[in-house]
Design a protein around this nucleic acid. Structure first.
Lengths: 162, 162
DNA sequence: AAAATATGTCAGCGTTGTTGACATATTTTT
DNA sequence: AAAAATATGTCAACAACGCTGACATATTTT
């Protein structure tokens, strides 16, 4: 604890000691996660900029490619955003020809989402720099180490609703 | 590749096969990182909501606590945002009594930032649920496994400018 | 026929990032 | 001492992407 000036009257207190892992807090992981994720998404961000798209578009293109035919409701559940938020970016992706909608064959209220070839190409282009970054981070690591990372990422997630 | 209808004329093409790791892309890591980070920041988000603060405030409080006395320029460099963005949240944190500014002892143009006791308490309260989540993810993992995670997070980051 | 469901849309708002321009205090350079 | 550079603050406008609330339409279920 310190004091703003050498005078006694005000006693304006502030902490001048760095907050370290004394309380059993793993700041290396906390900060590492922040910096790593920020840099991780900066790669596709740079690509998206030229198309006039953003991160929200990236996520939609990604998951539609990962599971072609998923419905709007499925996508909302995965992304955990509102339909109004999704509508904005989805409309742009459809208008730009990256994604198509098909009425559900059984339930015609549904809109099943599929990537076009452009949409697939875009998803791959966005994943590529991320893959290179992952490979660089994995460089020199054993198979067990890599498994540990995968397990860690899974363990950091909330329980999947089933 | 599929077709929207059985008709031939239009040939509206779309991909109906899921994009898997065929191109050597590790989607498990890519998606795991996305879901893990999203859930990771949701914990402090819930706490911040009651104070009327957001994620941007969290980051500022965190780094000021980690390195008391850092200057505004230092903070901008760490967060990689513009001073106008920082000003908004920093002002609120100062007005709310979580952070104090002190003119630099050598260079009086500088504003050195310090947490107050409230600011320290807030930083700890925000870190706590994140720590618990990390511990849960680390559960049952060896020391080498944990080191691998730390190394992975470091390797995912851009080279530090020095 | 009525209710529920899946989706779309309009309107407005909040947070947090951006750029550009300019002001002030202080330090460094000439 | 004057001029230039630096550290910070501030005003204004804008963009991306979350949110809520309300309402419309088509389709399916009850």
């Amino acid at each position: 604890m310190g004091r703003l000036t050498s005078e006694r009257k005000a006693t304006i207190e502030f902490c001048d000691q760095p907050l370290t892992g004394e309380g059993g807090i793993d700041f290396e992981i906390i900060e590492g996660f922040f910096f790593a994720y920020r840099d991780f998404i900066s790669d596709p961000d740079a690509i998206l900029e030229s198309s006039g798209f953003g991160r929200a578009h990236h996520r939609v293109v990604h998951f539609v490619n990962r599971e072609p035919g998923l419905t709007v409701a499925d996508l909302l559940e995965t992304l955990k955003i509102t339909k109004q938020s999704l509508a904005r970016v989805l409309k742009q992706l459809i208008d730009s020809g990256y994604i198509r909608q098909v009425a559900g064959p059984e339930d015609r209220r549904q809109r099943k989402l599929y990537p076009t070839q452009s949409g697939r190409d875009l998803a791959l282009a966005l994943a590529q720099p991320q893959q290179e970054r992952i490979e660089r981070a994995f460089e020199g690591m054993s198979v067990e180490d890599r498994k540990a990372v995968t397990r860690f990422l899974a363990g950091m997630q909330n329980a999947r609703q089933e």
